[in-house]
Amino acid sequence: MNSVPRNWRLRQQRYRLVGEICESCGVRIFPPRDVCPECETMEQKEVAFSGRGEVYSYSTVYHPPRGFEEFAPYTVALVRLEEGPLVTAQLTDLDSEQVKIGMSVEMVTRRMQSGGEEGPIVYGYKFRPAIQPAAA
């Protein structure tokens, strides 16, 4: 996570949820990989996913791994994207008691790690409860 070259290499999937469609069997893939996990061919096309999905399962982290202390406690969820893939990500903009399996969430680009006072800031996808329209 705190490797500068790795963060740079993954910026498209981290910032924009860029995954792949397998041109052979049509399955949606995230994160991108060389070989389709369904049909084992190598023909994939890049696509940015919508970012809409729902919580498949979740857990609240009180003792975070090194580098994530600043956000603890935080909730990590498996999010089922509407295109199909299951993505592991932090939830944000909510209190942990609000989380429900099946709740609608949407992707936002947020700080993953602040890098202390001198390091590079890492940005990436998190999910939050879908914005509700205000009463007119």
Binding site: F71, T92, D93, T109, R110, R111, M112, I121, Y123, K126
Partner: peptide, 13 residues
């Protein structure tokens, strides 16, 4: 702003 928000993240949205 929340803990994971700054001018970059708000501008993106």
């Amino acid at each position: 702003a929340g803990l994971d928000e700054d001018v970059v993240t708000m501008s993106v949205e």
